[in-house]
Amino acid sequence: MKHSIKLEHYLAALIVITLLNTFLGEKFSSTTLVSILIAITVTYKGFIVIDHFMELKGANKNLRFLMRLYFIIFPSLIIVSAFY
């Protein structure tokens, strides 16, 4: 039951972050700071899904490492692209 409540909290957090990202993108021209904020939140969203929805937290550490690495590499490229 406790696990179920947790899942709902994570879903709420994911939706709030999505709306926040959209607000940032719509209201502010893509400054470097906005891009960095969006990249960090994308990583955070990815980690939540990987650990708690995909349930890789406490499962195979190599698969978890690969999945999390993916959500470090591509959000990092978002930050790099802000300097184009």
């Binding site: 990202n21 021209s29 969006i38 994308v42 990815g46 929805f53 995909m54 591509f74």
Partner: peptide, 23 residues
Amino acid sequence: LAVYWHMIDLMWILIFPLLYVLR
């Protein structure tokens, strides 16, 4: 199937900011 479905969700988590948010 569940982990595959989550993978599809994860890909959208990356696609959404790239195409709709970042200017």
